[in-house]
Design a protein around this nucleic acid. Sequence first.
DNA 1: TGAATAATTAAACACTTGTTGAAAAAAGTT
DNA 2: AACTTTTTTCAACAAGTGTTTAATTATTCA
Lengths: 217, 217
Amino acid sequence: MAKQSSTKDRILNAAEKLFATRGFYGVSIRQITTEADVDPALASYHFGKKKDIFNAVMLRRAEVLNRERIAMLDDCIRRAKPNPAPLHEIIDAFTHALLNRATQGGQGWKHYFAIIAQINNHPELGGIIMTQYFDPLAKKFIAAIQQTMPDSQPQDLYWCYHFLSGALTLTFSGTERINNLSDGLCPPSDLYAVHDRLVPFITAGFKVFAKPHKITP
Amino acid sequence: MAKQSSTKDRILNAAEKLFATRGFYGVSIRQITTEADVDPALASYHFGKKKDIFNAVMLRRAEVLNRERIAMLDDCIRRAKPNPAPLHEIIDAFTHALLNRATQGGQGWKHYFAIIAQINNHPELGGIIMTQYFDPLAKKFIAAIQQTMPDSQPQDLYWCYHFLSGALTLTFSGTERINNLSDGLCPPSDLYAVHDRLVPFITAGFKVFAKPHKITP
DNA sequence: TGAATAATTAAACACTTGTTGAAAAAAGTT
DNA sequence: AACTTTTTTCAACAAGTGTTTAATTATTCA
């Protein structure tokens, strides 16, 4: 109906960039519309309230990322049939889409991941995407692992997922902390290097709970 | 010299509580001083700029926590001498102080950990505590692991530390996400249950890199 | 006690906040 | 062409922002 207006996209891109570095409350609508070179009133006109802008920013990418990750998980399970999929493949399927987008997806995706890291534990801001997109995927992921590790206990898997979630979030947040800490030895920009270590690390962690059940090491 | 004024503490406590849920930019000085039941001007009078309040909030606990964790690491290493300390004990020493404070430290500590989770990848806000307190501790921790796993490569250890850092941060942030996801099976309030799984999980992850060196699983 | 220092108050500063309304311009439709 | 709908602009709103100033009250110490 309407023309392929670029105004909405410019607002979203500007908002994404600013939210990534200063957070939701740290960015004003004026700053967004200035960055987008657009009248302040257009933000309200196109999106409504400020929080609606934020949701639009997040949903835009959550949708495509979610679809991709589900597809990779399904693929991984189908390839292995009739056997359960190998653990490290499940974990790779869960994480690889993030790697692809973070490395080849352009700056916008990096901003998106930085925002995710901020709202991962913020119910008010992260509620929508988390419950709508991430949680169903997480359940699928955990179910797949349950298949591969039939003797494991659900609580253990949920907690392991939790650890994975934390590691993943920090890894793709683009923080420079580890770079400073390692005196330049570990540039977070080299996401392939990280991913090559992340998957075995997490896989080994999960495998601890393959058998029932001895928590203290 | 001055009396043991409680005003500064009340401001810090109020700020801590509010920062934990709404972030630095999401909280105004008026909100803080109202919560503290104190005149707005007292914030500037006692602390200076808003960011100074934030730093004071963080430094207050970072100092005691840092001291505690270093002591536990040193203890762990000394106990094992002349052998290198066992890996899982090093990791426990690194994490156990957090567990103690989060479970027995009262509400303030929970707020503190929630803030840590927010600024973990925020250079502007997290810079001071991170470089001044957390980074030296991290180096000590990694050095200890290097001793236990002499054939490991520094890059691997740094990245593993990074994963641990992410998992830790999310775990102690107090988020309810995992609770919802697991339909109440994994209450994040039961930090002992989490910790009992976190340490073996991370230990197994590190051990992957004990020998040099085969990243793809 | 009285003088000096510290803490608290109330008011105001100039500026930014999110959002809205009505007028103007652009695009779309018949 | 004229008419309708969509988009953009400009101005304004009331409320909130961090911070400062000067006056007032508590406290400390000689």
